[in-house]
Amino acid sequence: MKVLVPVKRVIDYNVKVRVKADGSGVDLANVKMSMNPFDEIAVEEAIRLKEAGKAEEVVVVSIGVKQAQETLRTALAMGADRAILINAADDVHQDIEPLAVAKLLKAVVDEEQPQLVIAGKQSIDNDMNATGQMLAALLGWGQATFASEVEIDGGAATVTREVDGGLQTIKVNLPAIITADLRLNEPRYASLPNIMKAKKKPLEEKTAADYGVDVSPRLEIVKTGEPAERAAGIKVGSVDELIAKLKEAGAV
């Protein structure tokens, strides 16, 4: 079985985000970028399937600017076999919407014929939580989102999902899309020798036009602003003082 993992290059989760003064977006120039944390988990899961003998090949795909090469190299260094970069933007500030990403991924799936796609649950930049579900829709495949446990067994995956009330387990026929939640696994760090080896692994470059997919956005960004600031609070010296303050504020 072949496993396809879409990985997105996003602002590093530790970086303090700055909104650009002109309201056009978030400043991404000269900012540390990394693989979307959920995608690291997805890559890890795919590699574990390979190590367990349940998958033969792990292919990673990234859509965006050419710098996403680095993200793909990271995935290769973790243990993915092969990478595909789809150049779809020149400006690092241009985000490709989940619908367009899903259409491109569908085209890749049509070519590569994987039995399983493991995506991240959500990108930490646009916080859409949409691409996996959209890809499943376009392919007419089943979906198991927000996965915290995956078991592949013959023609199906049994997936435990993190839902509002607790956990839900479903069985989804392969081929299918799984999206990885935080507790699915703990991704490995790439070792130095593997980072070196990854430089020689195949990385194919394509463009969105190669797949005939229009990536123009459906959502026009009117404005990007700062969230409302909270007024500065105070420190209290004791539990008694805290209770007095809470009573004064009518909170208890």
């Binding site: 985000v17 978030v26 930049d125 916080d127 026009e220 960004i221 404005k223």
Partner: peptide, 17 residues
């Protein structure tokens, strides 16, 4: 309006769909 970047920015978007 929707929050992005873990609520560190609020984006106003206009849909053409």
């Amino acid at each position: 309006e929707r929050p992005i970047y873990a609520g560190n920015a609020i984006q106003t978007v206009k849909s053409s769909d």
